Simulated scan of single mutants.
Amino acid sequence: MDHMNKEQLMESARNSKGNAYVPYSKFPVGAALLLNDGTVINGVNVENVSFGATNCAERTAIFTAVANGYKKGDFTAIAVAGDTADFLPPCSICRQVLVEFCSPDMLVYLTNEKKEILELTLKDLLPHAFTNLDM
């Protein structure tokens, strides 16, 4: 992995959780997105009283990268951290957004409250991804 190992990337995700806006669920999630140039962009979940307006940490990181000029294919890995007994995977909406911007072989790191790290690829998370409009 460019400029950063999985433990460092996960630590960045864990550290970002403190910035989450979670007044309703009290469930902070942090994400750290590694770009091809070595840049790390963090994301957190941002809740809203209208729950459909809530944004997850993974999408916050991806959308921030896009807003900063990064493009499809610029993404190397993502780490997702929450305080859960089991490994915390991205929700299905976040998985679909990851598929839009990232290679099926992109590394995805998940953690749990014991700070163990599970290493997957995006295609492991979403093996039959919706990848184009078949119209």
Rank of each mutant, 00 (worst) to 15 (best):
M1P: 10
D2I: 15
H3F: 09
H3Q: 10
M4P: 10
N5Q: 08
N5L: 07
E7H: 13
Q8C: 06
Q8G: 10
Q8W: 07
M10N: 07
S12G: 01
S12Y: 13
A13V: 03
S16P: 04
N19Q: 14
A20K: 01
V22S: 00
V22Y: 03
P23K: 13
P23N: 12
Y24T: 04
K26N: 15
F27R: 07
P28R: 07
P28E: 01
G30Y: 02
A31P: 01
A32E: 00
L34R: 02
L34M: 11
L35P: 04
N36L: 01
N36I: 03
N36W: 00
N36D: 00
T39A: 14
T39K: 11
V40K: 06
I41N: 05
N42E: 10
N45I: 08
V46W: 04
V46C: 15
V46G: 15
V46E: 15
E47N: 08
N48I: 02
V49G: 15
S50T: 10
F51S: 09
F51H: 01
G52W: 08
T54Q: 12
T54S: 14
A57H: 07
A57C: 10
A57P: 01
E58D: 11
R59E: 13
T60V: 12
A61H: 02
I62T: 00
I62P: 08
A65H: 05
A65E: 01
V66G: 04
N68P: 02
N68C: 09
N68D: 13
G69N: 11
K72H: 13
K72T: 15
K72R: 15
G73Y: 14
D74F: 05
F75M: 12
F75S: 05
A77T: 01
A79D: 06
A79G: 14
V80L: 12
D83G: 10
T84N: 11
D86R: 12
D86E: 14
P89I: 07
P90K: 05
P90N: 02
C91I: 00
C91K: 06
S92V: 06
S92Y: 08
C94D: 01
Q96T: 13
L98E: 05
V99H: 08
C102W: 04
P104N: 06
P104K: 06
M106K: 03
L107G: 00
V108N: 04
L110W: 05
K114Y: 11
E116Q: 13
I117S: 05
L118M: 14
E119W: 09
L120T: 05
L120M: 07
T121P: 03
T121S: 13
L122R: 02
K123T: 00
K123V: 04
D124V: 08
L125I: 09
L126A: 13
P127L: 03
A129I: 06
N132I: 11
N132T: 11
L133R: 03
D134S: 03
D134A: 07
M135L: 15
